[in-house]
Amino acid sequence: MVEWYLFLPQVGLGVEELTLRACTAETSNFDGVAFLDHLETPMAPASPIWEAMTLATWVAAKTERLRIGHLVLCDPFRHAAVLAKQAVTLAEVSGGRFELGLGSGSMPDELAKFGFGTATGRERVVALEQTLRDLKRYWGEADDAQVPRPSQPIPLLLGGRGPRMLELVRRYADWWNLPATHIDALPGLVPQIGNARVSVQQMVGFIGKNADADEVIGKARRRYGHFGSGLVCGRADELIDYFGGLHSQGAQRFYVWFSDPAPESIAEFGESVIGGFRAND
């Protein structure tokens, strides 16, 4: 069964506004919600952004069914021992609804600005692998294992598409996520990820039943046209067909990123697109 997550960057909205959108997703056929992880807003550092793990904990407390995660947590931001403890705690307090999404860090300038070093991309991937080994150790039976241990496995998602990242996906991940900017690469990358399940991040300009199509498409393309094929615009029937095509290429989960994340759009999308997709599946 295909899973549907709301990708909800915690930028430019208050905590209560973000919580409202997550709660709307929970009652509108979405399976989960995911946040991003930055210390300043990418390409807009003056725009406020909330801390990723704290917000995830808050939203977990305000929801009952929705799974909670990130696309993706930045490995350099957290010592592995601290991350291991945070993940177990959030998994337990949420009733097993937390999924650990990790990446090696995509913005070197941000890492340098806030004192996380100047490691190369290759060095950051090496460091991420060490974190993955450490997590396994802290959650296992090693002499320095932490208690409490996870009462059930915490799903691990890795994001990235380089050869070294895909090797980590094959060796460690339950899920692999392809960013919206590389949707066209999906068919060629799926055979390289081993047994990991496939998720896709997709920016959507959703044309609701009472919306003006030209207005929605124009606004979405002005803001997010640089995503290329990572942006898709359409009405419910068109989007059902589109996501069906990605599913046929191997996608098993969609992280839907709305160009206009109004609660009304989230609710209508859940009813018409997700509901329609499942009715046809």
Rank of each mutant, 00 (worst) to 15 (best):
K219Q: 13
V200H: 04
N195Y: 03
R65M: 10
F243K: 11
G234Q: 14
E64W: 08
G270I: 01
R21M: 02
G103S: 08
A211N: 13
E123W: 10
E215V: 09
F254L: 13
L189S: 04
W176V: 00
R137H: 10
C23I: 10
P261F: 04
L246C: 14
C74G: 08
R171A: 05
M203G: 01
G188S: 14
F35C: 12
H70N: 14
W257E: 02
A34E: 00
A220D: 00
L157D: 01
R65G: 06
R137W: 01
R133L: 14
E64S: 15
R171F: 01
L36Y: 05
T27Y: 04
R78K: 14
R235K: 12
L178T: 05
A145M: 13
V33I: 14
G244S: 12
S151G: 09
G245D: 08
L135N: 01
P187R: 15
Q10M: 06
N280R: 12
I68D: 00
F206Q: 01
C74V: 15
Y172G: 06
S265A: 10
R222T: 11
F277N: 04
F116P: 03
A34R: 01
I266L: 07
V11H: 09
R221Y: 06
L71Q: 10
P163Q: 12
L178G: 07
Y224I: 05
A91N: 15
S106E: 06
E3K: 10
T181K: 09
L168K: 10
Q252R: 15
G140A: 11
L71D: 02
W50R: 13
T19G: 04
T41P: 07
L168D: 03
S151M: 15
K62T: 04
G95E: 10
W175A: 03
A87S: 13
M1L: 07
Q86E: 08
A22G: 02
I49G: 06
E264V: 08
